[in-house]
Simulated assay, not measured.
Amino acid sequence: MTDNVKTAVVTGASSGIGQATARQLAKDGFRVICAARRLDRLTELAEEINGIALVCDVTSDDDVARLADAVDGHLDVLVNDAGGAFGQDHVEDTDLDKWRAMYEINVLGTVRVTKALIPALEAAQGTIMFVTSTAAEYPYVGGAGYCGAKSAERNIAGALRLELGGRPIRVLEICPGMVKTDEFSTVRFGGDQQAADAVYEGVAEPLVAEDIADCISWAVTRPTHVNIDRMIVRPRAQVSNDKVYRG
């Protein structure tokens, strides 16, 4: 990028928190590279926000290399949002393929993208935002796989902050609680809409993607000497991972 417009990369930008974050950062004046797997959704979003659509599966070395090329050596903000939960099985009944998929996306995919973009972020004195989850705070029944993946991602963020100490890159983390989006729970329950809807049943005001996007926007636009190490964001009705007040 050769002009003075700040650039942001948002992974997982085709839906949910990633999509809302891309929109918000565009409003904040960033040129946003919208990265995800679904080109049709990315194209529509990029046209809406005057951004750039780039197909990127974070589990693919080739795709991530193309993403690194696209930033052209200078990146102000990276939002690592690509991820997901698959299943809610107890450990003794679990499908290890679901665990493998969660680790490939949430953990290895996040590392792959971050590693590839650190040089461009350092050149811009940039910011890395990890979108983890309150699942990283402590476990819940049926959450072993997802809690494990998000805990790993949290510790990657923490270790990276230590490793980059003294260099001009901020490492931030946001931990969303119950956020009602079009796809997260539906994907988790394998397309079972009834099971997905039950997660939010009776909760008058779960968070929505725009709530998290607003928090991400605030954190990444603080003065460069201000590091928001970790921000936990829940709806008022959710007082812990397994305690939600329902009307």
Rank of each mutant, 00 (worst) to 15 (best):
A209H: 09
R167F: 00
I118V: 13
T127C: 12
G148N: 10
R167C: 00
T186C: 13
G191W: 05
A157Q: 03
G165D: 13
Q193I: 12
D211N: 15
L160G: 08
L207R: 05
G166L: 09
T134D: 01
L117D: 05
V131W: 03
C175R: 13
A195L: 10
F189K: 04
G165W: 02
A157G: 08
R170P: 00
L207K: 07
D197P: 03
R154D: 15
A196M: 08
N155P: 01
E122I: 13
G165M: 11
L207W: 03
G143R: 10
L207A: 13
C175W: 03
S151F: 06
P176M: 08
R188E: 14
I156N: 10
E122K: 15
E201N: 03
L160K: 02
R188I: 09
P139L: 00
L160Y: 03
Y138N: 09
R112F: 12
A159Y: 02
A120R: 00
A196S: 12
I169D: 11
E205Q: 12
R170D: 02
S151D: 13
I118P: 01
A144H: 11
E137V: 04
Y200P: 04
A123S: 14
Y140C: 04
V199I: 15
I174H: 06
Y140F: 13
V113G: 14
C147M: 06
A124T: 03
Y138K: 10
A204V: 01
D211V: 08
Y146N: 13
G158N: 14
I174C: 13
R154Q: 13
A159G: 12
V131A: 08
I174L: 14
S151V: 07
E210A: 15
Y140H: 09
G126E: 04
G126H: 01
Y138E: 14
E163G: 12
V208H: 10
G148E: 09
R161W: 05
A195I: 01
K180T: 07
P139W: 00
V199F: 03
D182R: 13
V199M: 07
R154S: 15
R167D: 02
L162F: 01
I212G: 11
S151G: 15
E205I: 01
G142Y: 00
R167Y: 01
I156Y: 15
A116R: 06
R154M: 13
P139Y: 00
L172I: 04
R154W: 01
M129R: 02
A136S: 15
M178I: 09
E153W: 00
G148R: 05
I169L: 15
E122R: 15
C215R: 07
I156T: 12
A204P: 02
A198N: 06
G148T: 06
I118A: 07
A123R: 12
L162Y: 00
I128M: 09
V199E: 14
G177T: 04
T134W: 02
C215W: 00
V131L: 10
M178S: 14
E122Y: 08
A204N: 04
F184G: 08
R161K: 06
E183T: 11
A157P: 02
L172T: 02
K115T: 11
E205W: 00
K150P: 04
I174Y: 07
T114I: 06
D214V: 03
R167I: 00
T134F: 02
Q193L: 15
E210L: 06
E205F: 08
G158Y: 06
L117Q: 04
